[in-house]
Design a protein around this nucleic acid. Structure first.
Lengths: 129, 129
DNA sequence: TCGATCCCTGCGCACATGCGCATATACTGC
DNA sequence: GCAGTATATGCGCATGTGCGCAGGGATCGA
């Protein structure tokens, strides 16, 4: 993987553990890729606001774009991404698409997003990956 | 915010709630921006692997780059981002910079990253934002 | 003091992302 | 069928991101 000599910076052993022994314990690239994509799906303010809105009620695309003050196109494209990662689902009702959160239990943490007192810094969001 | 007529797609009222009443309940743009940036910081596979490695032991930049098979430059730049969001800290020891997780309690969820059985889909990562 | 090591940063390039525009599709009511 | 509404999608542009390269500062050993 790397040609770095095992003795560079003279730290082959850390806390009594050989560095080489750590290698297999680190999340592998493929897995990291998958997880990172999921985080990135949440890494857009508009998408967070869409999820926030859907935590309040089922909404059609038109309602969402009106509520958030963004174009229908942008709304639809963000919803496609959220769909891809299974974060929202929708049902067709006539010509409308009614969207909802896949997991309703997300409503609570999303609600807390509005008022959360900047908790223990970054501690939380990864609590239970 | 938007000039959409309040009656577009004939859904002024959803579940007995006026759409307009939902507006103040949605996460505001500024807050969403801040939260989204934090998620984006986690939205890179290399950064997730850095956090994963640091969940195993304190490591210097050199060790990290060797362990993950990436250049020292890339390592340093990712660490800067993680520092910006308070996810890691470091102390200087001679000419080395020894990095560690800001919150050691993240080690557990990071360890689970390696083997987690693709849980209830996306439910978890936002459990306690 | 001098070279080597460890780390950081400015710059530039390749690539990804968000979004607007135009357009396509699907459904509704006349 | 036809016009109007609700949504989805291809394309192009402006901007953001990851990373290599080059170079600079700090520390250590000789």
């Amino acid at each position: 993987m790397t040609e770095r000599e095992e003795g560079a910076c003279d730290a082959v052993v850390v806390h009594g553990i050989k560095l080489a022994a750590l290698q297999p314990l680190v999340v592998d690239e493929e897995r990291a890729q998958v997880e990172a994509e999921r985080f990135r799906a949440l890494g857009d303010p508009t998408r967070l606001r869409i999820l926030s809105a859907l935590s309040l009620a089922e909404l059609c695309v038109c309602d969402l774009s009106g509520l958030l003050g963004i174009t229908q196109t942008a709304t639809s494209q963000h919803l496609k991404i959220l769909r891809t990662f299974g974060m929202v689902r929708y049902r067709k009702q006539g010509r409308m698409a009614i969207y909802r959160l896949t997991d309703p239990s997300l409503a609570a943490p999303l609600a807390r997003l509005r008022t959360a007192p900047r908790g223990r810094d970054l501690a939380d969001e990864r609590r239970s990956i």
